[in-house]
Design a binder for these strands. Sequence first.
DNA 1: CTTTATACTGAATCTGCTT
DNA 2: TAAGCAGATTCAGTATAAA
Lengths: 380, 380
Amino acid sequence: MSGAIKNTSDLPLDKILCGECVDVMRSLPTASVDCIFADPPYNLQLRGELRRPDDSVVDGVDDDWDKFSDLETYDRFTREWLSEARRLLHKDGTIWVIGSYHNIFRLGAILQDLGFWILNDIVWRKSNPMPNFRGRRFTNAHETMIWAARSQDSKYRFNYQAMKALNDDVQMRSDWYLPLCTGNERLRNEHGLKLHPTQKPESLLHRVLLASTAENDVILDPFTGTGTTAAMAKRLRRHFVGIERHPDYAKAAAERVEREEALPQDAVATTPMKREAPRVPFGSLVERNFITAGTVVYDRQRRVSATVTPDGTLVSGTQRGSIHKLGALLTNAPSCNGWTFWHFERDDTLVPLDALRSESLAADAEALTLASAEVPIAAQ
Amino acid sequence: MSGAIKNTSDLPLDKILCGECVDVMRSLPTASVDCIFADPPYNLQLRGELRRPDDSVVDGVDDDWDKFSDLETYDRFTREWLSEARRLLHKDGTIWVIGSYHNIFRLGAILQDLGFWILNDIVWRKSNPMPNFRGRRFTNAHETMIWAARSQDSKYRFNYQAMKALNDDVQMRSDWYLPLCTGNERLRNEHGLKLHPTQKPESLLHRVLLASTAENDVILDPFTGTGTTAAMAKRLRRHFVGIERHPDYAKAAAERVEREEALPQDAVATTPMKREAPRVPFGSLVERNFITAGTVVYDRQRRVSATVTPDGTLVSGTQRGSIHKLGALLTNAPSCNGWTFWHFERDDTLVPLDALRSESLAADAEALTLASAEVPIAAQ
DNA sequence: CTTTATACTGAATCTGCTT
DNA sequence: TAAGCAGATTCAGTATAAA
């Protein structure tokens, strides 16, 4: 990510490291990763059997004190790995954690306690959840992800345009409807049984990575499991660091990543963010004669007008300023995007200045293409 | 509720009590209510004013009651009222709390700490949420409710059949799709402005009470506001105890309850809900790998072509857009149905994208069938 | 009366670079 | 570090006005 100080050089990139999550994290350099996706143990309390984060079974003592102590154990474990996670994230990095009602409230509260800044909670609505077969509750048809920046002032990445494009050109909402991981996507053992109980669907990670990372970014997954995060990172031409304590899972994940193919570079490009497009000063359009000095420009309703001057400012009566400033001034607004506010006449219709900007960028791209087509000859 | 010892005789039934929530709760008898619905302050921590792209100002929640100096203060407040809530619930009672990502993790963790037993987290998906105006996050399109029993061994009430009937005879899921409270339902002051910034929709409380209470049950609402809980309790022939700190709100809520009519006793509310028709964004087919990024697509006559990108847009030369937009662009048409316009190669023939849409819907239906068929095995 | 255009609104932690 | 300023940014709905 631009500007931020990163420490990737010492990272073991694109590997699944086998070991205890916190131990391995302690061995990695500070401020070295762009994004973290974590699918920690859920502390599920099913069939009377209580499991600690280390998978050991808690004695079935059914009193309040024991439940309390178990929550404490889970909290301590959570605070440990989340503290390390925060150290590994660089200042503009973000983290995703996923959980169910069993553990997500512990995760969220501790994230906040540690200084993470929650950006969204995302609901993964399952298209094919397991029904509630005792009929004693609502069908538990979703899981929750928390997306948080390292701190309140992080300049985090959010690929807004890509998410909007992914959702038929309306803003992507906080509720995502995706199927469970089933069929061929599900890793199975030699008996055809699922290898891992909670393998996440590739579609989920695809969207997570597309939303919050850039090409070549480094994503850490402290609970790699079957390696969905790593595989999607490779597919989308990102880098990953995976940690998995169970050797069988670590092996399966590594083999899966091996099988995964990276998409061709030109296929991972998504709709660019406008902010990242090259900045075009309006004055340069006048210089390059995309619009002539003296042209009269109007707002869409032709309520106000102004004249273009050779240095790219607009003049209206005694008032003068940039396209943005004069627009704000004439409408008594605190601010104004002059590119979309001002229009000029072309073929009897009003065209926004923004069209000229697009045309100039297209012309530049065209020129670039022509130039690079010539490169092989020139370079040889 | 059957069997449980209740103490309703000393309760001030069907009244809105004006006073501080915890103070009033302390004056009520132990184990006296069947159900609690609580909509506490969210502690939103809004900073500056927010403007829409048209420069209008968003009327946010800037009331003093939503301001807490820090998380610790909010936690202390939460622990206080939840402790009283637990005392007031009889042993088989349940509680609902609603919140957003700002406070729901604090609420959930403290509920668990106090010994409540979480039954479900319910996602209220808003059909018409406020968009994200700066394009810096996902549209915050939901709020979360936690439904919890007083303790793990509570014999709580869940009206399974009523919920199933309400949902076209399939189990009610944990994600509910309901509109905001607007129009005539919204209480307004003499200037026509909203009386309360966070009035909840009646449909939400209707479902909550129908799911978890019986006729003549007593429901406590410690943060009554405009009295949606009380009004729905009266409509559904339940009893309520409301607590509200602000005299204006307490008065408005009491008047609202007065206007509300109880349904006739034999009117069993099982209004069938329409199920949502699944909309398939093209991007989701890329995510789910029904079609791969990098695939080249053509019109039927192969006159134009484009490449699929990971966010579901198509790229052709320097032009990029949704399947619909790019189809229109390349054919100079005002609009275009990209689903039928674009084709990809499969077995040497051109297949329209629409086929993939059908296939994804069929796959979802298939997975649904398999999932429910597998349940007995998974349950073992 | 019908249709179309315009205005308004909702629990929101809502910018980022340069000087 | 604070100020200045370029410029990016909205969906579903209801209510009212205009045609």
